[in-house]
């Protein structure tokens, strides 16, 4: 009898203990996450803007008056304007091939798409120097035909394309795979051409994934440093992009100008984040619907 009642009453305090522990653990984890966010994300972001405006608003604007800075901004925009559409087209093609067709070497292609993520951008840059540089494999031929790739805009575009290639394809592949082939097959049996099927059926089905991919791809294309730094040669006013220009300015102890430019990239990151969140919030239903079934 006493044994039974002891067994009955025992769980009560133990249960309460567990709840208290749970709360403590939860609070600790939340605090930890918060501390991390503040220390590694929020503080740096704030300090970028703080440094940029340290000498006042006029000094901040003056940083953009510099022709080198303007050239860097222009080059960054040009590179993104080429690399992003290119990667959208190729990324869609690769994702389509992987999601809709069965062929030998499909797994290899899937892992190759991820390669740019696992290769250090500096190595990626060096590979292009090795291929197209003056001492590279194609260097003599390129020089003979007056084609400049390394230390010029084409090299920067190539390096950026390489580094940002996975974003679009990786967003699309799982989505296309989840959607299956039924919709496309239905369109084809109804007599639609391949193009019509793609533009009327497939593209509307994956538009949100595609948009995410483009946003991320663009952010990275504008922010890429390592690979671009290697292939561009960092010729001021000619082959510097925003990130490489920032480094040059910073190394010259021109903190305000460096952080003024950095604030542009930080703003781009914030805008990307806000856009992504806004899209998720505004179109949550249709995104869920397009991912469902």
């Amino acid at each position: 009898m006493s044994d039974a009642s002891a067994r009955l009453s025992a769980p009560v305090p133990r249960y309460a203990d567990r709840m208290r522990e749970g709360f403590a653990v939860r609070a600790l984890l939340i605090l930890l996450a918060l501390a991390f966010l503040v220390l590694f994300l929020f503080l740096p972001l704030v300090s970028v803007f703080a440094e940029a405006f340290k000498r006042g608003f006029d000094a901040y604007l003056a940083a953009f008056d510099d022709p080198d800075a303007m050239a860097a901004i222009r080059l960054t925009l040009i590179v993104a304007a080429i690399a992003v559409p290119f990667n959208v087209v190729v990324g869609i093609a690769a994702a389509w091939a992987i999601a809709k067709f069965d062929f030998k070497g499909k797994n290899l292609l899937t892992s190759l798409i991820d390669l740019p993520f696992s290769v250090s951008p500096v190595i990626a840059g060096l590979i292009y120097v090795l291929l197209f540089g003056a001492q590279g494999y194609f260097g003599t031929w390129l020089k003979a035909h007056d084609i400049e790739i390394i230390f010029a805009v084409p090299g920067i575009v190539l390096a950026t394309v390489f580094v940002t290639f996975p974003f679009v394809a990786r967003e699309l592949i799982p989505h296309l795979q989840a959607l299956g082939k039924d919709d496309e097959e239905a369109a084809l049996t109804l007599g639609a051409s391949g193009w019509r099927t793609f533009f009327k059926i497939t593209l509307p089905n994956v538009k949100w994934s595609l948009l995410y991919g483009v946003l991320l791809c663009n952010a990275r294309a504008m922010g890429e440093f390592g690979a671009v730094s290697v292939v561009s040669g960092r010729i001021r006013g000619l082959t510097t992009t925003i990130p490489t220009q920032i480094e040059i300015l910073y190394n010259e102890y021109n903190g305000v100008a460096a952080f003024a430019l950095a604030s542009l990239l930080a703003a781009l990151a914030l805008i990307t984040l806000v856009l992504k969140t806004f899209l998720e919030w505004r179109y949550a239903d249709s995104i869920a619907a397009s991912r469902h079934s």
């Binding site: 039924d182 919709d183 097959e185 369109a187 639609a192």
Partner: peptide, 29 residues
């Protein structure tokens, strides 16, 4: 070709076009 075969295929999943209304679905072909 698939178009020339003129197949009326009803899929198990129906495969209705989610981004089109009933009218546009039927008019698609």
């Amino acid at each position: 070709s698939l178009r020339e075969r003129r197949i009326g295929f009803v899929f198990q999943s129906y495969a209705l076009f989610k981004n089109m209304n009933v009218f546009e679905n039927i008019a698609f072909g």
